[in-house]
Structure formats: C-alpha cells, structure tokens
Amino acid sequence: MAERPEEANAKLEQELRRGVIVLATLSQLREAQYGYSLRQALAEQGMVVEEGTLYPLLRRLEGQGLLASEWRIEDGPPRRYYTLSDEGKKLYAGLTASWRNLVDTIDRLIGPPAAGEDQSRKRKAAP
C-alpha cells in the first residue's frame, strides 16, 4: 500500500530530526543533567524530544562510553545525572564542527529563504 504524502513527509522530517538528537543531547550535557531536566532544557530551546526516545538514548550513549552518570539525591527522589565523558567531549567537538560545515553547505544549496518563508517558519515554531 502506498504511503500517503503527509505520512511520508512526517517520516522524512522525523529522520532529519533523528540525525541531530545526539548532537542536541550532547550539547546540553556539558553540565550534568538528569533525564527529565535534560528534556525540559531541550524543549525550552525548541528541540522537543520524546521521552521514550531520549531516556533510552542516554543509556545507549553511556554504554558507548560517551556519557558518565551517577545517582544523586538533592531536593527530591534519587536521580541519575549524566554528563559528557572525556570521549563524549571529543565526539561533541567533532560533531559540532561537522554540523557547522553541514549547515553552511545546506544553506548554500537551498539558498536564502523565499519571501514569507521566514514568517511562516516563525509562526510554526511559536508555542
């Protein structure tokens, strides 16, 4: 059965976002965060990541040695805080450079925004 255009578009956008979730996550873990606070921090800056995606991702990145974690008890129940490991810091620097190159390249490819496109983008991003 053929995929409907809106479904295909949603999937492609999801693929696009999936590619940058790791970089977005690493960017916020230069300081220790626990899962929920990390999600809030990302969402506040416009990067909404599903909890069901983010929490397992933290564990996978930790398993790859890119994050370090520890249980802390502050004001509330015990929480597992994650931060970049040395390996994670190196990866973050590398991914950041790659991202900047990619953005420059794509910007060159797609050119400046068409008239009205910027306004509609702003309206779309508004809560």
Binding site: E50, G52, T53, P56
Partner: peptide, 15 residues
C-alpha cells in the same frame, strides 16, 4: 502510551 509501547521502548535501550 505517549512514552511508547513497552517492547519498542525496551528495543531503544539496546544498542
């Protein structure tokens, strides 16, 4: 339910 189906969520924990 918004978090995801348990089997899918569990799969995401696996490398």
């Amino acid at each position: 339910r918004q978090f995801g189906r348990p089997d899918e969520v569990a799969a995401r924990y696996h490398p």
